[in-house]
């Protein structure tokens, strides 16, 4: 089945069985291995991507369901260089082993697009579907809060 989608702002076409998971399509034929597989059953959030701007678990979405829709992966936030949000994770210790990080960045991006000045509670709610086994979350919350501040100071452009 030929599927046309907008991937990180570019129109892409893939020819795949429609029930192939978006996660596998991204990491395989679409050549974007930044999205990680954790649990593979919608619990851990490692594979979070944006589907028409909303965070979803790519392990639960079929590539056929992406026809005509816009998908943003972690590569779309940062390419070709580390973006300001990812830089805040580096600077504030928000990333350790790194498996949860792409999903955390996507969930944070979805939050900041809607809430330029989120409270800590809103940040924690936004990443509640992203499990991290390293940081204890506080440094991730700090990273997102700092990214929000930088983005506001840059007039929303960061």
């Amino acid at each position: 089945m030929k599927i046309t989608l907008t991937l990180n702002g570019l129109s892409r076409e893939v020819d795949l069985p429609p029930l192939v998971r978006l996660l596998d399509a991204l990491r395989g034929p679409l050549g974007l291995p930044g999205t990680k597989e954790g649990c593979g059953e919608g619990e851990c959030g490692s594979c979070t991507v944006l589907l028409d701007g909303e965070p979803v678990n790519a392990c639960l979405v079929s590539i056929g369901q992406c026809e005509g829709r816009a998908v943003t992966t972690v590569e779309g936030l940062s390419a070709p260089h580390l973006g300001p949000l990812a830089r805040c994770f580096v600077d504030h210790g928000g990333a350790q082993c790194g498996i949860c990080t792409p999903g955390m960045l996507i969930s944070a991006e979805a939050l900041l697009a809607r809430r330029p000045d989120p409270s800590d509670e809103e940040i924690r709610e936004a990443i509640a579907g992203n499990l991290c086994r390293c940081t204890g979350y506080q440094r991730i919350v700090d990273s997102i809060r700092e990214a929000a501040r930088e983005r506001r100071e840059a007039g929303g452009a960061a």
């Binding site: 909303e54 979803v56 969930s107 709610e125 509640a128 579907g129």
Partner: peptide
């Protein structure tokens, strides 16, 4: 219900 990723689907 769930988390935002589940609510979105």
């Amino acid at each position: 219900l769930g988390a935002i990723q589940i609510q979105a689907r």
